[in-house]
Design a protein around this nucleic acid. Structure first.
Length: 475
RNA sequence: GGCGGCAUAGCCAAGUGGUAAGGCAGCGGUCUGCAAAACCGUUAUUCACCGGUUCAAAUCCGGUUGCCGCCUCCA
């Protein structure tokens, strides 16, 4: 298979040719753990989760690194605000991160390093930059000298001169150039600090990723990912650091995901419209969230609205309804899927083209329609083909990180969570359904319809199937 | 001021030179006691607008308008 990836560095789709054939090294910037994760974090993590799953499915031996930034100004500020230890804050939000991401079926990375565990490599890295003349020390601070790195700006497509023309640069008279950034920050009283040749302090924000990628993946590796907002300054500065230290190419493919907007507005502190994953999870199934996040191309913005989420839920219901029907028709899926079929092939074509999950999801739905049609047709050869298409669909689900449940478990979960909002419980519903079944047998359709209407008012939808009546909660 | 992106049916959204995927919603039909679900059919001669290149453009080029993002912590 040939995968094409849009590389932010070249602004074009390139054929993915890893450094070592058959292997792929991936570094994705993880969260700064000073608050709960919002839906935007979810998108980034889910997008790269899917990319890694797909690379593995394609036979690549992937080494996937995702870090935690557990020392940072924001964490310290938060700790001071709450009167807690910064490390306790970090710990709390790392735990929350795992709760959210596990719920979203995000696979763990192969290594999930934390800044606090990487102080020695970070210091070694800074020393290298000082030795190379790429950095300078002032008092207890060490700054990177952007003018010393000829390629500065090549990732984000900016020129230092152009940016200096802008007026939005913080003033720090210690710096030689306003765009110089801290590699090491001297500690103020009460702040967490580590010893260093330059005095007690902590690493700047950007150096950690350069150091961690170097330690885990080497000087040059394949894919570096993160949100679009990280292109500048964070990733630009990583390039400057790593290439400034080793004089070798850093990441070979830069992959950046777009934002999640809320009702067409960017999430921002001023608007106070941060949507936390844990809150979204209260209203929507984790796979609904994934399906929604993957329904647009990863580089495009995606707009979170109730309507969009309801549509994603309707889509997921449809897929599980199919799986349920297929299971009744041809039995549960085999442990290991057979030879992949036409739908899977088309899905991989979509994914090969810069991980086009939106197109891939379209293929998945076409598979659902095809297989449903086969079951309707009831021809002799239909059932084996249904099984084959179902295998393809489940295989796609394995990449998208959805369809992790049996249909029975999915609908049972849907019912119980949706039922909590209604003033009725399952046993009452079952009793009413039995009564209605008797009424229908007696051809007392008035009574039967009255029961159905009564349940409908409580958002309980009945479906009379050949093998009996089932119920679902609408919404 | 600098850099970049987007504009496709009622809504969401793929599609980067060869004649418009998919989803949601709607309508007609099959099925059903009636429904629901499912399936079938149907819904853009057209891809913001104006020019240009080409046998051929939603797709390339130039311009116009509108929206958005980054340049500051941010996924």
């Amino acid at each position: 298979m040939t995968i094409r990836i849009y590389n932010t560095m070249s602004r074009t789709k390139e054929i993915f040719e890893p450094l070592s054939p058959g292997k792929a090294s991936v570094y994705v910037c993880g969260p700064t753990v000073y608050d709960s994760c919002h839906i935007g974090h979810a998108r980034s993590v889910v997008v790269f989760d899917v990319i890694v799953r797909y690379l593995r499915a394609g036979g690549f031996e992937v080494t996937y690194i995702r870090n935690f930034t557990d020392v940072d100004d924001k964490i310290i500020a938060r700790a001071n605000q709450l009167g807690l230890d910064p490390m306790a804050i970090a710990e709390k939000y790392i735990r929350e991160f795992y709760e959210d991401m596990d719920a979203l079926h995000v696979l763990r990375a192969d290594h999930e390093p934390r800044v606090t565990q990487f102080m020695d490599p970070i210091k070694a890295f800074i020393k290298k930059l000082l030795d190379n003349g790429m950095a300078y020390q002032i008092d207890g601070d060490v700054f990177y000298a952007v003018e010393a790195f000829g390629g500065y700006g090549k990732l984000s497509g900016r020129k230092l001169e152009d940016m200096e023309a802008g007026a939005r640069v913080g003033i720090n008279e210690k710096k030689r150039n306003p765009f110089d950034f801290a590699l090491w920050k001297s500690a103020k009283p009460g702040e967490p600090a580590w010893d260093s040749p330059w005095g007690p302090g902590r690493p700047g924000w950007h150096i950690e990723c350069s150091a961690m990628a170097w330690q885990h993946l080497g000087k040059t590796f394949d894919i570096h990912g993160g949100g679009k907002d990280l292109i500048f300054p964070h990733h630009e500065n990583e390039v400057a650091q790593s290439e400034g230290a080793f004089n070798e190419p850093f990441a070979r493919y830069w992959v950046h995901n777009g934002f999640v907007n809320i009702d067409q507005e960017k999430m921002s502190k001023s608007l106070g419209n941060f949507l936390m994953i844990k809150d979204v999870r209260k209203s929507y199934h984790s796979e609904t969230i994934r399906l929604f996040l993957l329904s647009n191309h990863y580089r495009s913005p995606v707009d979170f609205t109730d309507k969009a989420m309801d549509e994603a839920r309707a889509g997921l219901d449809r897929i599980y309804t199919f799986l349920e029907r297929a299971e009744a028709a041809v039995g549960p899926p085999a442990e290991s899927a057979e030879t992949a079929g036409e739908h899977w092939r088309r899905f991989t074509e979509a994914m090969d083209d810069d991980f086009n999950t939106a197109l891939g999801i379209g293929v998945l739905f076409e598979g659902v329609r095809t297989a449903n049609g086969l079951m309707d047709a009831r021809t002799d050869d239909a059932l084996p083909r249904v099984g084959a298409v179902r295998d393809d669909i489940l295989r796609m689900g394995g990449i998208l990180g959805i369809l992790n449940q049996t249909p029975a478990a999915y609908f049972s979960g849907r019912r119980s969570s949706a039922l909590a909002a209604e003033s009725i419980d399952a046993s009452e519903i079952e009793a009413l359904i039995s009564e209605r079944t008797e009424a229908r047998k007696a051809r007392d359709f008035a009574r039967a319809d009255a029961i159905r209407d009564e349940l409908a008012r409580k958002n309980i939808v009945l479906e009379d199937r050949p093998d009996g009546t089932i119920w679902k909660v609408d919404g």
